[in-house]
Amino acid sequence: MHEIEISELRRLTEVIKLYHNYDFTNYAISSFKRRVSRILDLYKIPSVDLLIKKIREEDGFFNTFLEELTVNVTEMFRDPSFWREIRDQVIPNILLNHNQISIWHAGCSSGEEVFSMAILLKEMGIHHKAKIIATDIDRAILDRAKSGEYQLKHMDLNEKNYIRFQGKSSLKDYYKEDNGKVYMDKSLVNNVSWREHDLVRGVVFNKFDLVLCRNVMIYFNQTLQNVVLKKIHESLFRYSYLCIGSKESLIWCEIANKFIVVNNEEKIYKKIKD
C-alpha cells in the first residue's frame, strides 16, 4: 500500500462534495488519512483513484464508505465518573428551574450514549420528564442505534462501566439476550427522536438544556470545530450545559468566553452568554 498523498485526499473530498454533498474538507487530516487507508485495506482497493471511481460509479458504495469513515468505537457509560457528575450535579441543577429537560446527543453513533442517558434518567425517576434528540451524519448507524441491538461480547465492558457509574441495579435488567446478541428495552428510548443531521452543514434546529457532543470534534480541524461549536452554542438555552470528550477543549475556540467551566476533569461547560 503506497503512502496516501495530500493531493489524493483533496481529490477524494472534492468528488464526495460534488457527487454526495458531504463536506470533509476540514476534517483533521491525520485522522481522515488513517481512516481512508483503513478502507483501502478493508476493501482491498489498491489506490485512492480506484476508491474515487468506486464512489462515483458503484451504487450504494458511498454509504459503506461513509459508515467506515465515521465509525465510532463507543460503549455504554464510557467514563463512568462523567456519568456520575451528570446524575449528581448537572441534571439536578437543570431541574431546579425546569419541570422538563431537553437533551441533544450530537453525533450519537450507534446509540450506546443514548441508552446510557435513558437508563440514568430512569433510575433518577425522571425519564418521563425528558425529551431527547439523537443525531448522526450516517443513516445506517442511526438505524443501528434505533434498533437497540448490540453484540453480547461487548456487554461485559458496558456492565463494568455501569458498576463504576454506581447504577441502581444491573445492566442486565435493561436488555434481553438471544443468540449472541442483546436487545435493549425499547421503552428506554420511547422519548427519543432519531434524526440524520450533519453537524458541519446542518442548521440549528432546536434549543436544549443539555448537549452531549463527545469525541466528535477530535476528527475536525480548528476551523470546523469553530463552526460546530458556534451552532451548538446557538442550540443551548442560557445557563444550559455542554459536554465534550475528555481529549477535547473549548479553551481556544471563538466562543470560549460565552461558557464557564463546570467540571474541567469531565469537560462539562455552562453557557453564560448568548
Rank of each mutant, 00 (worst) to 15 (best):
residue 57 E to W: 07
residue 96 L to H: 05
residue 42 L to W: 03
residue 46 P to F: 00
residue 191 N to M: 11
residue 265 E to L: 13
residue 145 A to E: 08
residue 233 H to T: 12
residue 107 G to V: 04
residue 32 F to T: 04
residue 206 N to R: 03
residue 148 G to I: 11
residue 239 Y to C: 07
residue 139 R to Y: 01
residue 85 E to W: 00
residue 226 N to P: 14
residue 205 F to S: 10
residue 228 V to G: 07
residue 172 K to G: 06
residue 256 A to S: 15
residue 130 A to T: 11
residue 32 F to Y: 14
residue 143 D to G: 11
residue 265 E to D: 15
residue 268 I to P: 01
residue 44 K to V: 09
residue 216 V to L: 08
residue 163 I to N: 05
residue 214 R to M: 03
residue 93 N to A: 12
residue 207 K to W: 00
residue 99 N to C: 01
residue 25 T to D: 15
residue 216 V to D: 04
residue 88 D to H: 06
residue 249 S to Q: 09
residue 8 E to W: 03
residue 266 E to I: 07
residue 116 S to Y: 05
residue 135 T to I: 09
residue 37 S to V: 04
residue 194 W to A: 05
residue 97 N to G: 09
residue 134 A to R: 02
residue 259 F to Q: 07
residue 157 L to F: 03
residue 131 K to G: 04
residue 246 S to I: 15
residue 10 R to S: 15
residue 166 Q to G: 03
residue 208 F to M: 14
residue 91 I to G: 05
residue 4 I to W: 06
residue 187 S to L: 10
residue 256 A to E: 11
residue 111 G to M: 02
residue 105 H to N: 02
residue 68 E to G: 00
residue 166 Q to D: 13
residue 212 L to D: 06
residue 34 R to D: 06
residue 135 T to N: 07
residue 110 S to V: 04
residue 74 T to W: 01
residue 56 R to G: 00
residue 49 D to N: 13
residue 225 Q to C: 13
residue 51 L to M: 08
residue 120 L to E: 05
residue 149 E to A: 05
residue 25 T to Y: 03
residue 81 S to T: 11
residue 30 S to P: 08
residue 67 E to R: 04
residue 119 I to P: 02
residue 54 K to A: 05
residue 161 N to W: 00
residue 86 I to E: 04
residue 72 N to E: 06
residue 50 L to M: 10
residue 108 C to D: 08
residue 53 K to M: 12
residue 162 Y to V: 09
residue 263 N to T: 06
residue 171 L to P: 15
residue 130 A to G: 09
residue 172 K to S: 14
residue 148 G to A: 12
residue 222 Q to K: 11
residue 128 H to A: 15
residue 231 K to A: 09
residue 131 K to I: 12
residue 99 N to I: 08
residue 245 G to Y: 00
residue 66 L to P: 00
residue 115 F to V: 07
residue 197 H to R: 02
residue 166 Q to E: 15
residue 52 I to W: 07
residue 110 S to I: 00
residue 31 S to C: 07
residue 139 R to D: 14
residue 258 K to H: 09
residue 82 F to T: 10
residue 217 M to Y: 00
residue 24 F to K: 00
residue 80 P to R: 08
residue 139 R to C: 13
residue 231 K to E: 12
residue 155 M to Q: 10
residue 160 K to V: 12
residue 190 N to E: 13
residue 227 V to P: 07
residue 112 E to H: 06
residue 74 T to L: 03
residue 269 Y to M: 02
residue 11 R to V: 10
residue 112 E to D: 13
residue 37 S to G: 12
residue 168 K to R: 15
